[in-house]
Design a binder for these strands. Sequence first.
DNA 1: CTTGTAGTTGAAAATGTCTTTCATTTATCA
DNA 2: TGATAAATGAAAGACATTTTCAACTACAAG
Lengths: 143, 143
Amino acid sequence: MKYTNRRIASLLRQKGFKLTPQRRAVLDIICSSTEHFTPVQIYERARQEHPDVGLVTVYRTLNMLAALGLLCQVHMDGRKRSYVMRRPAEHHHHLVCSQCGTVVDFASCDLGELEEKLSRQTGFEINGHLLEFSGCCQECKQK
Amino acid sequence: MKYTNRRIASLLRQKGFKLTPQRRAVLDIICSSTEHFTPVQIYERARQEHPDVGLVTVYRTLNMLAALGLLCQVHMDGRKRSYVMRRPAEHHHHLVCSQCGTVVDFASCDLGELEEKLSRQTGFEINGHLLEFSGCCQECKQK
DNA sequence: CTTGTAGTTGAAAATGTCTTTCATTTATCA
DNA sequence: TGATAAATGAAAGACATTTTCAACTACAAG
């Protein structure tokens, strides 16, 4: 399943959200690429077209989209406070370079069995998992 | 392998660190339980015995212990900035309740194969992974 | 096309977590 | 006991993110 700008727009309206130029700008950026962006990066890009969007609005829009399940986040290096958002695709995970921040996606993860086992052992109702590998990418290794 | 208060103390001395009452207080708290604590929680407990420890010192001590590999961190809910520390054991992962913050450890993870595959495909040198399940614990389910 | 209004906005201030700075104090060892 | 390198607390700083609030606007109903 692939979300397009237009599609998201109509979903928002359906949910009672207004489609403002600022939100449009954020959506355009996120939908125009498969890259990952930090809120600040999105903010900077959005300003090029629309010089008076505020960073606050970018945060608000991203939060809204995330709450609707349209975005997901990466935790750089597992420790940094900054986080990154991207337009979603299927369930997938991340491989993050701790030198340069490059993020590579991968889809295969086979945690269903482990999840079930844990659920049985602990009584938890498990509704999500976070799996990230970190390391050093090829380019950074060469330096 | 189990770390005791005393054992850590002598390790610190060995490494050239001083064993101050403040550090002792932090160590006592961490070693006296298998629970996870946030820096602020440790700070608050430490103050009960030793009213003039500063939060700064708690942070410094925790960072030092983490740098020595004696502690590890949890990322609550995968999003919160606050993090939790505990006394370490073997390699393990966490199962976090997003309602109440309870953390359960589990050891089994079978990611070696996946790690190798990713490494081959991407050229990354992988040196760590972060795996966390989140959900709702038994107690919270009942409410 | 107006108009009412609930939802949205930007700026500034606030929050929360963690780190740095610096003058003062202290654990440790010769 | 005294020298000294390391450690401390307070206050200020750094950042990412959120809240507050008065002004503004998308859009549906008329």
